[in-house]
């Protein structure tokens, strides 16, 4: 199936947010089909993270909206929306307890118990086989971020929203996390929006790219075309 005929997972329409007289995001329009990976790049403070937060409705848009599988996300409960659009933040913010406890967190919010075999599968996907019983206090930065990715996947999201998931890591840990993300995207054909200031990483992982400046999308298109320009 070509990208054009694949179902639409996410569509931002005139999406914007202004706080006081500060424009954080202005009139963002883009669409993602199933399995597509979109990189959002730009300099610090350009509005990349603000745009990602609007997609997950952690902040309220002041204009426009987002359609998730064709449904205006204002018609979805915020909890259901956030389960569907799983977010991985720059810092992993693991909850105290074991790795398995963290993976169980999302499903437990809906009264579901994550089976041990699913926990084991998720940990294999992110390269942390047999880590389930480990205390999160003893994980390295890269391991913690991979647990964060697995914890988000435990909610079976439609799409992943990644907010500079490797920017706080050293080079070795960055490559580990990037490899885990790449494997998940490939194996699950997962739709993904990734904020990054790392152009090389965007080219390695994404199909398309948006460049944001002062809250506005100034370039959009195939990743190589946009970022090598």
């Amino acid at each position: 199936m070509s990208a054009a005929t694949k179902p639409s997972i996410l569509r931002a329409e005139h999406l914007g947010r202004t706080v006081g007289d500060k424009i954080l995001v202005h009139d963002a329009d883009f669409e993602l089909q199933k399995g597509e990976v979109l990189a959002i790049t730009g300099s610090s403070g350009s509005g990349k993270t603000s745009l990602l937060r609007l997609l997950n409705r952690l902040d309220e848009p002041t204009s426009g909206t987002v359609f998730v599988e064709g449904t205006d996300y204002r018609n979805l409960s915020p909890r259901e929306l956030r389960r569907k659009l799983g977010m991985v933040t720059q810092r992993p913010y693991l909850f105290p307890g074991s790795v398995a406890d963290n993976l169980r967190f999302g499903p437990a919010q809906r009264g579901e118990t994550l089976p041990p075999e699913t926990i084991a599968e998720l940990l294999v996907q992110v390269g942390l086989k047999d880590y389930g019983g480990r205390d999160v206090a003893h994980l390295s930065g890269g391991e913690a971020q991979r647990v964060s990715v697995a914890r988000t996947l435990a909610n079976s999201p439609l799409a992943l929203l990644l907010d500079e998931p490797t920017s706080a890591l050293d080079e070795a840990a960055k490559l580990e996390v990037e490899a885990a993300i790449q494997k998940v995207m490939r194996d699950q054909e997962l739709t993904c929006v990734m904020v990054t200031h790392d152009v090389a990483q965007a080219i390695r992982l994404a199909d398309r790219a948006l460049v944001v400046e002062q809250g506005r999308i100034v370039r959009a298109g195939p990743v190589e075309e946009v970022l090598r320009a």
């Binding site: 997950n56 952690l58 909890r79 977010m87 913010y93 909850f95 967190f105 919010q109």
Partner: peptide, 16 residues
């Protein structure tokens, strides 16, 4: 705030 928003992003009820 980071931990709270992480819990929200994973589908937690705000009060939880």
């Amino acid at each position: 705030a980071g931990e709270i928003e992480t819990a929200l992003a994973l589908g937690a009820e705000s009060r939880n």
